[in-house]
Design a binder for these strands. Structure first.
Length: 458
RNA sequence: GGCCCUAUCGUCUAGCGGCUAGGACGCGACCCUCUCACGGUCGAAACCCGGGUUCGAUUCCCGGUAGGGUCACCA
């Protein structure tokens, strides 16, 4: 091969595409295919195309097309151009006609349902092999394929023909798609040769599997991409997760932004075997990204996810409260919708109204008597009164109480204090609790607890 | 069943002839700690089997086995 030709190939602009059929929602497998195509194109400063393969008029639905578009937008996968295969019917027809004229395709009588005609490709029946960027060489004997059907009629092309014609005319150079397309590749290569189109290079990425190791599909429950969005997963976490299943960076580390991925992604490091979709890892990544969010940004999300009925509560959540609530929430959730769930479950009821509880629970680990516990609560009340409402944070509260608590035995002071505030055996520490409830409300609850102990003591 | 693809801890994976087989998630223990959560430390946990090739195979080759994909007038 002359070296000039090699150069021209090397300099050819990279064009990749994601070509889903709008016959179902975009699921995680498709999203990852789109991501890999996107990364490859961006990395090579090429173009990434979205082509909606809607030639099947019966099954294609506009809502699915929208779902696909929305899903990609959510992930931040942008495309340079959007095509709809249905709008390119004339191109397919031309090509079909040329094929027929040249005797490379022909109309056949036998319709499967007994009626009508179909157009079949005259299969030369050769052994062909192609190079796959992930798997190396793959060989097929195409004679067993027979004269396969390429169109229902001159006006309605089928998958293989439409794909080949469109990839050719759009200048697609790299086809990156799911492993389930490996067996389609020989047919498409045959057609490319027939219409004198160049062969794009192929990369068949492994499938994302369900827990039973079968191809992930609707019957495995929630695999729809936008469903993850609605559950409160972060797009950055999803992109990171998708990249990590089936691909591995050269170095160590697991956290990758889209920009990192554009830099580091290579087809050579894509896994050959299928990978089981495992949500625990996604949850972990989501937590990581949640923690990385700016506090103000996270607070906005908290507001968004607090159920309406709590917002309407007579006790309004002030800005200061929100900051402190966000602090305890961020380290306790996997997804944003967990925020709603926590509120709904009553987890935070103590924020809105004074808890009711068995006063005996105020006592730390059984040993201390009522009076001593009461005295300790009184001391805490005394200390808290000196705090400036303005700079009421978990830290300032801790400062004022810590020394006393340490000298007295932390559990002996902190447990009754915390219990008086939340009425719960398990809750955030008493310092943030005060910062959430505010000085006044906290003192009220502590006094109430103290009084309860007197009542029991006498 | 034919054809094709694949095979390292439970899961995602590193490895590219010689390693105590590394990391991450999850799991367990301990530490931190008034409880919970966070955080920290440690730990249990894998090369599918059989032949070759080689001084030496997780790694290369062949054969099994297992799993998956695909066999449409769907894409």
């Amino acid at each position: 091969m002359p070296s000039s030709l090699l150069v021209s190939i090397a300099n050819k602009k990279v064009i990749t595409r994601f070509a889903p059929s709008p016959t179902g929602v975009l699921h995680v497998g498709g999203a990852r295919t789109a991501l890999f195509n996107y990364l490859y194109a961006r990395q090579h400063e090429g173009n990434f195309l979205l082509r909606i393969e809607d030639t099947d008029k019966e099954r294609s639905k506009k809502e699915y097309e929208e779902n696909i578009i929305n899903g990609l937008a959510w992930l931040g996968i942008s495309y340079d151009k959007l095509y709809r295969q249905s709008e390119r019917a004339d191109k397919h027809k031309d090509c079909l006609q040329r094929l027929i004229n040249r005797g490379l395709a022909y109309e056949a009588e036998e319709g499967k349902d007994g009626s009508g005609k179909v157009i079949r490709f005259r299969n030369p029946g050769a052994k062909i092999s192609f190079h796959d960027a992930i798997r190396g060489n793959i060989e097929f004997d195409t004679t067993e394929l027979g004269d396969f059907v390429v169109a229902k009629n001159i006006d309605t092309p089928l998958f293989h023909l439409a794909v080949v014609v469109d990839d050719f005319e759009m200048g697609v150079t790299q086809v990156i798609r799911g492993e389930d397309h490996i067996s389609n590749t020989p047919r498409q290569i045959l057609l490319q040769s027939a219409i004198d189109a160049p062969h794009p290079t192929y990369a068949h990425i492994p499938l994302i599997l369900a827990h039973d190791k079968s191809k992930l599909s609707k019957r495995h429950g929630s695999v729809s991409l936008v469903e993850f969005r609605d559950k409160g997963y972060l797009p950055d976490a999803m992109v990171n997760f998708l990249a990590l299943i089936g691909w591995h960076p050269e170095g160590s580390g697991e956290l990758f932004s889209m920009n990192d991925l554009v830099k580091e992604f290579t087809l050579e490091r894509v896994q050959k075997g299928g990978a089981i979709f495992n949500i625990e890892k996604l949850d972990w990544l989501n937590r990581e990204y949640l923690k990385k969010m700016l506090p103000e940004e996270f607070e906005k999300k908290v507001i968004e996810y607090i159920p309406e009925k709590f917002k309407k509560s007579d006790k309004k959540i002030s800005e200061r409260m929100l900051k402190n609530i966000a602090l305890i929430i961020v380290e306790r959730i996997n997804t944003l919708s967990d925020i709603s769930a926590m509120f709904e479950s009553g987890e935070f009821d103590y924020i809105f109204e004074r808890p009711t509880y068995d006063p005996r629970k105020l006592l730390w680990k059984g040993t201390p008597d009522l009076l001593v516990t009461k005295q300790r609560l009184d001391k805490v009340i005394e200390l808290l009164q000196e705090i400036d409402e303005e700079n009421l944070t978990g830290d300032t509260v801790k400062e004022t109480v810590w020394k006393y608590a340490s000298s007295e035995g932390r559990g002996d002071v902190l447990w009754p204090m915390r219990f008086a505030l939340s009425g719960k055996e398990k809750s955030p520490d008493p310092f943030v609790l005060v910062s959430i409830l505010g000085k006044e409300e906290s003192l009220k609850r502590l006094r109430y607890a103290s009084e309860t102990l007197i009542a029991r003591n006498s």
